[in-house]
Each structure stands twice: as structure tokens, then as C-alpha cells.
Amino acid sequence: MNRHGSLLDRLREDPRAAELATHPFDFDPGFYEHVEPVRLASGAALEGIGKDAGGGSFFLCGDGGDERPVLYADSEGSAGIVGTGLTEALRLRIGALCWGEALDTIARAGREFDERETAELLASLEAEYSEDCGLEDLAGDRAELVERLGLGPLPSASRLLELAREASALSPSYILLNEEGRPYDRL
């Protein structure tokens, strides 16, 4: 496997990695178009790098390589930073597939979850996802993709969610506008 070049190039050049990223991890590295024309309010560059099955898009913000903020825009008009770089965003997507649901569950509980509770919550959400999608070996797929992309070892479930919260704090600096100039809601 090629460990040189950008992470995005490695993902796109390895057919098996692209296949795993797309399913089961819902990050299709073949970017097409977002559901509508969008731009950053700051005027900074916005590079489409992937899609999910629900019509959402992933973008690198600003100029430079892989390690610039990754913004996710859903198809319903919400957007936010999901990683301070592509490595972090992919680790989140691969290591905590149901991270958004987990953060919502924790917020509704009105308290922080400890490491064990966070791991159990994510395991439960991923088991449900695996069953709904007919996945046979999510852990094996995860390990293979992490190896192919050179992303390991993955941080703990709690650390991944903490990184997601930290990245989302950057969102006010990365306001996404639709073609009429209206801002997307925060994720």
C-alpha cells in the first residue's frame, strides 16, 4: 500500500479503501456536487471531497493539504466542522460511525458520559446500524480501512467524541452560505 502522497489521494487510489469508506462508513470519496451551490462566508476556498448516502457533502476549507478543517453540509441546510483535518474527520467517521447520534443522546441525558458509558453507547448504536444495514464484520472493515489508510491506532470512543466537540467549536468561523447568501444552520 502507498503510504506517500495525500490521505485523500491514497483513499481515492485504493479501490478497496474507497469501497470500505463508502460502505459501511458512508464517506464516498468520489465527490459529485452538493445539492445546491455553496460557499464559505469568509470567501475561503471550499473543496468537495466526499458525499454520504443522505446527500450530504464533505469539504476541505481554505487552501493547503489534507490537514485543514473538514466541513460537513447535510442536504437539509445544516453544516459544521467535523474535523480539524482530514485525518481527524476520517478517524471520527471510521472509529465512531454513529458519533452524531451519540452526541445527541449525551446532550439529551444532560450530563457527561464516562469512557465506559461512551463506549457502550457507541457499541449499541453501531450494533443497531450493523443490523439495519446487514453488515457482517464492522470491526473487521474498520481495522482494514484504518490499516489501508495508515490512520491507526484510533483514539478511544470518548476521545473521538471529544475531538468532534472541539472541531464543532470551530464552526462559527466557517459559515456556509447557499446560493442566495443565506447561512446554513449549525449541525
Rank of each mutant, 00 (worst) to 15 (best):
L71V: 15
L71Q: 14
L71D: 14
L71F: 15
L71M: 15
Y72L: 07
Y72D: 06
Y72K: 07
Y72H: 11
Y72M: 08
A73H: 10
A73P: 06
A73Q: 12
A73M: 12
A73D: 11
A73S: 14
D74R: 03
D74Q: 05
D74F: 02
D74M: 07
D74N: 15
S75Q: 10
S75V: 14
E76G: 11
E76V: 13
E76Y: 09
E76T: 13
E76N: 10
E76P: 10
G77H: 00
G77E: 01
S78T: 07
S78D: 04
S78N: 05
S78M: 04
S78I: 00
S78W: 03
S78H: 09
S78G: 03
S78P: 04
A79K: 05
A79H: 06
A79G: 06
A79S: 13
G80M: 04
G80Q: 03
G80N: 03
I81Y: 05
I81G: 02
I81K: 03
I81M: 06
I81A: 09
V82F: 06
V82S: 07
G83F: 14
G83T: 15
T84S: 11
T84C: 07
T84A: 13
T84W: 09
T84M: 11
G85R: 08
G85M: 12
G85K: 10
G85T: 13
L86E: 10
L86R: 11
L86Q: 11
L86P: 01
T87A: 10
E88R: 10
E88M: 12
A89M: 12
A89H: 07
A89L: 08
L90P: 00
L90R: 08
L90D: 05
R91Q: 15
R91V: 11
R91Y: 08
L92Y: 08
L92I: 11
L92Q: 10
R93A: 12
I94K: 05
I94Q: 06
I94P: 01
I94R: 05
G95R: 06
G95P: 02
A96I: 06
A96V: 07
A96L: 06
A96F: 00
A96N: 08
L97I: 13
L97Y: 02
L97C: 10
C98Y: 01
C98Q: 15
C98A: 15
C98F: 00
W99A: 13
W99I: 04
W99H: 11
W99K: 03
W99F: 06
W99S: 11
W99N: 07
W99P: 00
W99C: 03
G100L: 02
G100R: 02
E101H: 10
E101R: 13
E101G: 13
E101D: 15
E101L: 13
A102K: 05
A102D: 10
A102E: 10
A102V: 08
L103V: 02
L103P: 00
L103D: 05
D104I: 03
D104E: 13
D104C: 01
T105N: 08
T105E: 13
T105S: 12
I106H: 02
I106E: 05
I106N: 01
I106D: 03
I106V: 09
A107R: 02
A107S: 05
R108S: 12
R108Y: 14
R108P: 09
R108H: 13
A109P: 09
A109K: 03
A109W: 06
G110L: 02
G110S: 03
G110A: 02
G110P: 08
R111Y: 13
R111H: 13
R111E: 15
E112P: 01
E112V: 01
E112T: 02
